[in-house]
Design a protein around this nucleic acid. Structure first.
Lengths: 291, 291
DNA sequence: GGAGGTCTCTGACTACAGTCAAGGAATGGC
DNA sequence: GCCATTCCTTGACTGTAGTCAGAGACCTCC
């Protein structure tokens, strides 16, 4: 804990401040950040949400960037209230220059290290980033019909539709009422208010639950999030008096199968007529599981 | 490199900004930082140097803190121009509250992690900090009579005086002219403009140099800095046509002996009449050493 | 006993970051 | 067709950070 705070202080002082300062250089920091966030184009609404800025403040900064010839404002056809901000060639060049400067700064910071030390540093940072991200993700029970739940399921369906040789029919997804209240549960994992994973639990038979649709956003994989979702679903099952949970996976999802085995699931014979099923698993839950 | 920048961005956004923001809370960030830096008391001059602030700005902020009853200004007896800033009990309480808040924030960030994951995170951060610090340290050749060189040698002498059972007589230190120009070299390692280590090279005989006074500040140990200093001295020796370097160490400095062996030094018979010598080492240099 | 330098304080600024409220234009639901 | 809502813009502010120049008190060195 003390070590954590120590690192934070040291790192912020050495890198954080510098980074921002050099990035802006000849331009107010707010504008530089905004320009960077615009990227290849974004709506003002989106930028306001993402950066948490006041509408008036954002409007003015955007105008300033426009006056400098760095961005263009266009009105989208489908909604005349909105404004899309797009970088001009000059704006793109400016961002590239920002990146170049930041890279040069980073290179300068690493100058004193040999290749082996750099590799060690990179590995340590990757580990720290992975764990910090995982620490920042919260798993919440939401209504199966909520927008976030539907968005996750849509992404899940699109994801496996691309991976299954036979595709995936969205009609096979759980219905909201199956995962609500006593019947079951729907969990969504949030990273900085953005849903990045989900999992569903439904009642299969008395005392037996089924786990379905465990999914993690591609950008949030390899953090250990699927295990957290699984543990949360197991806890939800126990809370509903379901001492046994089952699930099936498609034959192509080999990593998923490995994870279920590692989490105490044992392969069992086919228990349903799911057309996508290739492997069936079961786990008997005890109170300490999913804690 | 990309990973490095990625981590910087992520970390700054997640931790750095928050940290500062929460720290200040009901007080301008500048004042909060200043109060923290004052610690148990400091002179305005010192604070100005350390924080890189404008004299007028600092004066005003200090006055503001004084008006809030958080610090006291006293004039030191030895120089009436200076002002010492000391925290009042209320100021101390304020800093403690800052710390408490920052700790709570950090604890909140780590909440989602189990003990094993926390340990992994802490280890990764310690590694990253060690390497970043090492990367930020520069080794420079300075005049043996310079203030920094003398400060390092004084610290070195005090250090080993405490460790040698028989104490240490400063008369045994190299004289500035022995480590100047063609005769030898004096290296000082700087971390953020502060000298944190040194090493001396002098000519012992034609083609033979002697390395002396390799020292690292207690707060900069275990970074691998002694090896860098040693490599720098070897390079300096080669540049002066000294293909062989020797050195001696006291019997109690066992870590130093291990380091010399690891760096290619072989123990040899006594080659001088140094009263502090307990082990004598030699290394034949090749062009690639010390590069 | 100056002369030159150091240290602090004060006044007068500037720029950036951010907030609040009013209002116009457009949209969507009824 | 109306009304509430959304989205953006504009004007009027506030507070913080930071700079610059001048002046007074004091110190050190010669």
């Amino acid at each position: 804990m003390a070590a954590f705070r120590r690192f934070n202080r040291y790192f912020t002082r050495r890198i954080g401040v510098l980074d921002d300062h050099y990035l802006g250089q000849d331009r107010p920091l707010g504008e530089a950040r905004l320009l960077f966030e615009i990227g290849e184009g974004a709506s003002l609404r989106e930028l306001r949400r993402r950066l948490g800025l006041d509408a008036g403040y954002l409007s003015r900064m955007t105008k300033a960037l426009q006056a400098q010839g760095l961005v263009r404002l266009v009105v989208p056809a489908h909604d005349n209230r909105l404004r899309l901000v797009e970088p001009t060639p000059a704006g793109r060049a400016e961002v590239a220059e920002q990146q170049r400067r930041a890279d040069a700064l980073a290179a300068g910071l690493l100058e004193g290290l040999g290749p082996a030390q750099r590799a060690e540093l990179t590995a340590a940072m990757a580990t720290a980033e992975r764990l910090l991200r995982l620490a920042g993700i919260t798993v919440e029970t939401v209504d199966g019909a909520s927008a976030d739940a539907r968005a996750c399921l849509d992404a899940y369906a699109a994801d496996i539709d691309a991976r299954f040789p036979e595709g995936y029919d969205k009609a096979a997804l759980v219905r909201p009422e199956e995962v609500t209240g006593d019947a079951g549960a729907f969990l969504v994992a949030y990273e900085e208010q953005r849903p990045v994973g989900c999992g569903a639990l439904r009642r299969l038979a008395p005392g037996v639950g089924e786990i379905r649709h465990v999914w993690v956003h591609p950008e949030a994989r390899r953090l250990g999030l699927a295990r957290r979702l699984l543990a949360g679903l197991e806890q939800a099952a126990l809370a509903r008096g379901l001492a046994v949970v089952r699930l099936d996976t498609h034959a192509v999802l080999t990593e998923a199968q490995a994870m279920y085995r590692a989490c105490g699931y044992a392969e069992i014979p086919r228990y349903n007529d799911d057309v996508y099923g290739g492997h069936w698993f079961e786990k008997r839950l005890r109170a300490e599981d999913g804690a």
